[in-house]
Simulated assay, not measured.
Amino acid sequence: MIIVMKRSASQEDIDTMIANVEGLGLKANVIQGTERTVIAAVGEERVAGISSLESGPGVDEVLPILAPYKLASRELKPESSTVTAGSLSVGNGTIGVMAGPCSVETSEQILACARAVKASGASALRGGAFKPRTSPYSFQGLKEDGLKMLAAARDETGLAIVTEVVSPDDVDLVSEYSDVLQIGARNMQNYRLLEAVGKSPRAVLLKRGPSATIDEFLLAAEYILDGGNLNVMLCERGVRTFESHTRFTLPLATVPYVQQRTHLPIVVDPSHGTGHTSLVTAMSKAAIAAGADGLIVEVHPNPDKAMSDGYQSMNFAQFEQMMTECRRIAEAVDRELGAMVAV
């Protein structure tokens, strides 16, 4: 349920209500809105004494949260959230662009990518150091050495680092080097991992599983929010269908549909969503027109020689042209593309 505090409520009133909520065995999550404070009481709502919250000091009204995802719901927070991590800002009119290779391969490769994507207007560098692969014989990533290369690229360019974490045991290590923890599609319902990143101070980019419904997607985000980490971005990266002309089917209707139901920003991945370099620019422009809050795109100095996903990666010239075209779309819908936050 939602406890809406009066505009005149003091901090003492808010603290008292938090104590009252927790005294009933519920978890209190405080959301500071632009005009008033809201307390989400999460847990079993049929506990004895819950009606007493309505008469608490400074309380305006107590409302039920109807959506199964409580903390992610717009019922709790009508205003859209913005996630900021280092140079990256996503949400509320700012379209964050994360770009870089699928996998970190060498220091020279990742530095070249960082310089190029920054020059073209990206606001974050993406790159995989830990790579969960379908085949055990595929390249699995450079692990901590790759993380160090990403950190070195951040030191030179100032770009925030977005990289995947694949195990709860690695969350602290990856958090040490990165600004955004990516949860890949294979791990969207790895609940122990979601709980672990929920305790991390780093922002999280949660990718939709290829067979996940929207409710399952938002409930996965709920695990992270429930852990105390409110800096969550959703990512539509395509779903598995009967079609074979693309790697996945990229449903851009997800963008406005999700935005009606959650305050969390949503990012689109046209690289994984299509699996074809030639389609990435068109789908990036379409995503912006649909209202996406961000893009995550694969870029490599020499896609033909990439150790993973080269067939869907752009080279530097292609990415620069994509950004030029996307910037026109963003301007047409009164939004800003890829602006870096000063850090």
Rank of each mutant, 00 (worst) to 15 (best):
G146N: 01
D169G: 09
T84D: 13
T274L: 04
V297N: 07
K6G: 02
R335P: 11
F319E: 01
E236P: 09
A48N: 08
P64V: 02
Y311L: 12
T254Q: 00
G121K: 05
A287Y: 02
L295R: 00
T94C: 11
S73F: 00
G33W: 05
A72C: 14
Q321G: 00
V42C: 10
V239K: 05
A151T: 00
P101V: 04
N92H: 13
S52N: 12
I296V: 15
L250A: 10
F248K: 13
S313R: 10
S107T: 15
A19L: 04
D304A: 14
A287E: 02
D155N: 14
F139K: 11
A306K: 10
S135H: 09
I31E: 05
A122Y: 04
E164K: 11
E216Q: 15
M233Q: 06
V42M: 07
T94E: 14
A342P: 08
L76K: 04
C326A: 02
S308Y: 01
K27R: 13
T274A: 00
P101G: 03
V174T: 03
P251F: 13
T163N: 06
E325R: 09
S313F: 10
I39G: 09
D215M: 10
A112F: 00
L147Q: 01
A292T: 13
L205W: 04
V59M: 03
R186Q: 12
V341I: 07
L125P: 04
A212D: 01
I3P: 05
V30D: 04
E61H: 14
G58L: 06
M98W: 06
N29H: 15
F217D: 04
Q189Y: 05
E164V: 07
S81Q: 14
L206A: 06
V174K: 00
M322A: 06
V171Q: 12
E79W: 00
Q11F: 15
A116Y: 12
D15T: 14
A85R: 05
V42I: 13
T254Y: 14
F248V: 11
L76E: 07
Q109F: 06
S51R: 15
D145V: 15
V204Q: 13
V21M: 10
E105L: 03
A85S: 07
A282V: 11
D60L: 15
Y137N: 08
P57K: 09
A28S: 11
A196D: 07
P210C: 11
S167R: 08
E105H: 04
D13E: 09
